[in-house]
Design a protein around this nucleic acid. Structure first.
Lengths: 129, 129
DNA sequence: CAAACATATGAACAAATGCTCATATGTACG
DNA sequence: CGTACATATGAGCATTTGTTCATATGTTTG
């Protein structure tokens, strides 16, 4: 979990700092603080993208694009240990990117919503320039 | 940089592994390997999202949503050291999320394209459920 | 209930990450 | 050219992260 603190600086916006600061800052600061989400929302956003920022988890999501799959099949298809997959599924579930459904001994996972597909597509588009 | 290796397992898809594996696997494996991007593309995707996965970089991007800004102003607005901002800008630039333009002593940064805004919006939507 | 199987989870460890500090590079100007 | 200022960068360090290993939880079946 990211716990970076944003120190609220005692400086006034009118204080000289560098560059053509005294001219640009007041207006810029006003616009930024008007449109920048709250600190907590920024952390949540970063946390969400962090979840997409691991190739194992991306691979899991790609498999779930195709079908509802149990942990054990995921492990085999991706050629990883059941434990590793389970740990990653937990992270995906916490981020509400996947949902779990128990059926007897097995637990089947699916995408939580179509949002996931969209976000990954956007990423792909960017990469393909 | 992420350098996780995907071992190519010697097992055949028809070998028994677990669950109702012998039935499900062949078809699943076929579909997955048909639609799953190449290993390298998966890493690139993960690398891209990793860049969005830090609140400092997210905050930088939000400022750039508003205006073209020099390093020094970024540092002041976000209340961080010039060095920290510079390091993060380098990562953003490598990911082609921002562009730099030199004007005299200063270097001004802007968003590389509107893709960035879209990706962050998608993330926000997901968070707001 | 005991045994077998599927999944989850905690501890430990190596690798990656973000910041700080010192310093290098680049640019303008006297 | 030397000084001042804006930015970039390398090394070091503390924190975070992903995997493995051992083990716990949960479920079915005899």
């Amino acid at each position: 979990m990211e716990i970076k603190k944003i120190q609220s600086h005692g400086e006034q916006a009118s204080e000289v700092e560098c560059c053509d600061a005294t001219i640009v800052h007041p207006e810029l600061l006003a616009r930024v603080s008007a449109d920048m989400p709250q600190e907590e929302e920024l952390y949540d956003l970063a946390e969400l993208f962090k979840v997409f920022g691991d190739s194992t988890r991306i691979r899991i999501l790609y498999v779930l694009f195709e079908a509802e799959v149990c942990v054990c099949d995921l492990a085999e298809v991706l050629n990883m240990t059941q434990s590793a997959i389970s740990h990653q599924l937990k992270i995906l579930k916490q981020a509400k990117l996947v949902k779990a459904r128990r059926d007897g001994k097995q637990v089947f996972y699916t995408l939580a919503d179509e949002h996931v597909r969209t976000i990954i597509s956007m990423g792909q588009e960017h990469i393909e320039e």
